[in-house]
Design a protein around this nucleic acid. Structure first.
Length: 400
RNA sequence: GCGUCGGUGGCAGAGUGGUCAAUUGCAUCAGACUGUAAAUCUGACGGAUUUAUCCUACGCAGGUUCAAAUCCUGCCCGGCGCA
């Protein structure tokens, strides 16, 4: 094994774009990029057996979450089991997200129905209110399950209400225990409704946490040998902040970079361009939590190497599948009446296990009758769809 | 046959004189979902509509009342008990 656990080589650059095809070498194997990373937050891809990833999906890498595994079953248990890959029987490279997204989903977004994507005109609000040293009363007053301060974040467990504190160092420590090949510096994922002043403040804080994450990582020699660390670019929807974040992080000793935070659909492209133009070219870039097929097309051409997103499995569980049409990607709600007697393949152009063996009508029946096979088969298809679509984008770059 | 209880929107089941086109659940119809608080959530759900209102509705037919799903009478149907 090399001194550096994570290395990246660019195999081919796509002329005229920022896109590139490459390989990320990890202790658990190679990841040919661009690649879609399957999300299994709690060490399980919802509705799938771990083996299904190899047999039916074909993904090369999977991602779990630090916050969730810390709460259940506990990072010490995962460590004792021999690490995430062994514990979960994930026979492939793995990534853990730092818990930074939970700062958003349990914080600014809690109970508000806000997503990290701004839709059209967005009112910005000063999120300063969240910036206080933790107290239980404060959390209750603010209707949040987490409160941010300079040192870190205090969470109220969404499971049992117990209090837990994450700092940059603590997140890294937990991720060392979980043992994924790639770990991510603890960051603050901001809300798209946050105003610029707050985005700047959160970004600067994330940069300070980034520095501390590197220091914490370097203090664990064993982990340093087998885990790579990514820093996370922030800056919200503000291009100047995005540029600044990319530049600041570029000067830190990371093995790769996550691009995080909030966007609006319209300026996702502009943000990715300015970020990737400023990140070092020879390090892998992971677009955190994005996205839909169209987003991946855009992200790849703008120089992102890996992507993770819950959308394929989340929409699958409620009866929606991806379908390729002449007009492009389509989301098909199998619960719609018209599919009850539609005996065509779920996706005519797809050659996955589900599409070669079942019909829309059968899947529709499974969903209508509440059978668990419905979410399972739809998840298999959607993951295969997005993983293979991303593979095709890689092939296009190789052929360009 | 006698007694008794009951018949409410696709189903189950509230309501027992006005605030009832009728609580709620299921089903149905549609929508949402982007580092998973998520096998979740939202909306619609008698008909018409100029969305203000109007019409038809709580087994059927009458009646009482300013007003009835709610009270009275008869009929029809069902459960249970006794013959």
């Amino acid at each position: 094994m090399t001194e550096i656990p994570i290395s990246f080589e660019i195999v081919k650059r796509q002329p005229g774009t920022l896109g590139r095809a490459g390989v990320i070498h990890t202790p658990h194997g190679d990841i040919e990029t661009p690649a879609f990373v399957v999300v299994g937050t709690k060490g399980t891809v919802k509705s799938l057996k771990p083996e299904d990833m190899k047999s039916y999906v074909g993904n090369q890498v999977a991602l779990a979450n630090t916050y969730h595994l810390f709460l259940q079953p506990g990072d010490d248990v995962v460590k004792e089991a021999g690490g995430l890959a062994k514990f979960s029987n994930w026979d492939m490279p793995t990534i853990t997200d730092s818990g930074g997204f939970q700062v958003f989903s349990l914080g600014a977004a809690f109970g508000k129905g806000v997503t990290k994507f701004a839709k059209g005109e967005t009112e910005t609000v000063n999120e300063k209110a969240g910036l206080n040293v933790y107290s239980k009363k404060l959390a209750e007053d603010h209707g949040k399950l987490c409160v941010i301060d300079e040192e870190g974040v205090t969470f109220t467990s969404h499971i049992d209400g117990s209090m837990h504190r994450f700092t940059a160092e603590r997140s890294i420590d937990i991720q060392h225990n979980i043992g994924a090949d790639i770990i991510i510096a603890f960051d603050e994922c901001t809300s798209p409704t946050a105003d610029k002043a707050y985005q700047k403040e959160a970004m600067d804080r994330t940069h300070r946490w980034a520095k501390r994450s590197i220091m914490a990582h370097k203090q664990n020699y064993e982990a340093l040998k087998r885990q790579g660390l990514y820093g996370v670019v922030q800056g919200g929807r503000y291009l100047d902040l995005r540029e600044e974040s990319a530049r600041v992080l570029s000067n830190m000793d990371f093995d790769g970079f996550g691009i995080g935070g909030s966007f609006s659909k319209e300026d996702l492209g502009d943000a990715l361009r300015i970020v990737n133009e400023n990140l070092p070219e020879d390090k892998p870039r992971h677009l955190l939590g994005i996205g839909e097929p169209e987003d991946i097309t855009e992200g790849v051409s703008l120089g992102c190497d890996t992507f993770d997103c819950v959308a394929p499995t989340r929409i699958a569980r409620t009866g929606t599948i991806y379908e390729m049409t002449n007009q492009g990607h389509k989301r098909t709600n199998l619960l719609n009446t018209k599919y009850q007697r539609d005996f065509s393949k779920p996706d005519e152009s797809c050659d996955c296990y589900v599409c070669t063996n079942y019909t829309k009508a059968y899947l529709a029946h499974l969903f209508r009758s509440g059978e668990m096979l419905g979410p399972h088969l739809a998840s298999l298809h959607n993951l295969y769809y997005i993983v293979n679509f991303t593979k095709k984008l890689r092939e296009q770059i190789l052929l360009s």
